[in-house]
Amino acid sequence: MGCRSGNIRAGHTATPEPHPLLEPTIKAPTPASWAYAETFVPEDEVLARARARADALGFPTIAPGAGAVLGVVAAALRARAVVEIGTGTGVSGVYLLRGMPADGVLTTIDVEVENQRAAREAFAEAGIRPNRTRMIPGRALEVLPRLTDGAYDLVLLEAGTLDVEEHLEQAVRLLRPGGAVAVNNALYRDRVADPAQRDPITTSIRELGKAVRDHKQLLPAMLPSGGGLLLAVKR
């Protein structure tokens, strides 16, 4: 049998080229790759209008990449019961409800009634039936204790509040075994990874990450989607 390459002499072994995916070091994605990943699943007019309402209200929204991940997680869990802290204008809610089964119900909590009014508009535009959402106005720590233990498949938290660790405690209580908790904005504008950043919000998110990572009931992973999406499954 002949040799494929005519320039390898007898007695000499060719050095194989390293596989491009087996580089020994971890490399951060380039800005172009990050942008490609964030927009890999394009948003439709429903989400675009919901984002415009958020801009008008001066309210931040979940990034497209993180929203797409939430939809996939909801679909993988076949999540019929989801809790969301921070309704906003419905951007994350639309992603969640589109991933959930047709009979799934989203319980969403927000202190601002105006936000929930805007979210209702987004849900209606998305063709989501009103009985698939349960909107509760109020502070999360006043509402969450009234929800049933172990009755939920997925809980979405928003980083950026000083009481987010207390939200985590409630989320673990609410989740069934095999359910998941997600924390949006878990890298907080690239501040969490920088030990020099010690403002109260950054510190609280950093402590939340440690609490999730060290929690005996949770199996965690941190994704760099959007502003950072921290995911953990309840064992």
Rank of each mutant, 00 (worst) to 15 (best):
P60L: 14
P60R: 13
T61Y: 00
T61W: 02
T61D: 00
P64F: 05
G65C: 08
G65A: 07
G65K: 05
G67A: 08
A68K: 09
A68Y: 06
L70A: 07
L70K: 08
L70I: 07
G71V: 01
G71C: 08
G71K: 09
G71A: 08
V72G: 04
V73G: 01
V73T: 12
V73K: 01
A74L: 07
A75I: 05
L77C: 09
L77Y: 06
A79K: 09
A79L: 05
A81C: 02
A81N: 06
V82K: 00
V82F: 04
V83L: 04
V83A: 03
V83Y: 06
E84S: 11
E84F: 04
G88V: 05
T89N: 05
G90Q: 08
S92Y: 10
S92F: 05
G93A: 13
G93N: 03
V94M: 01
V94T: 14
L96C: 05
R98G: 03
R98L: 06
R98K: 11
G99V: 09
P101S: 09
A102H: 12
A102P: 01
A102T: 11
A102K: 11
G104W: 04
V105Y: 02
V105W: 06
L106S: 00
T108V: 11
T108E: 01
I109E: 12
V111P: 03
V113A: 14
E114N: 11
E114P: 04
N115D: 07
N115G: 04
N115R: 15
N115C: 13
Q116E: 08
R117K: 15
R117A: 14
R117Y: 06
A118L: 07
A118D: 00
R120E: 12
A122C: 06
A124I: 02
A124D: 10
A124S: 12
A126L: 13
A126I: 14
A126P: 07
A126R: 12
G127S: 06
R129Y: 00
N131I: 01
N131G: 06
N131H: 15
R132G: 08
T133R: 15
T133G: 13
T133I: 15
R134V: 01
I136D: 00
I136M: 00
P137L: 14
P137N: 10
P137Q: 09
G138P: 01
G138H: 00
R139M: 10
A140C: 07
A140N: 09
A140E: 02
L141W: 09
L144M: 10
P145F: 12
R146N: 12
T148K: 10
T148G: 10
T148S: 13
D149Y: 12
G150K: 14
G150R: 15
G150D: 12
Y152R: 13
Y152P: 02
D153W: 05
D153R: 00
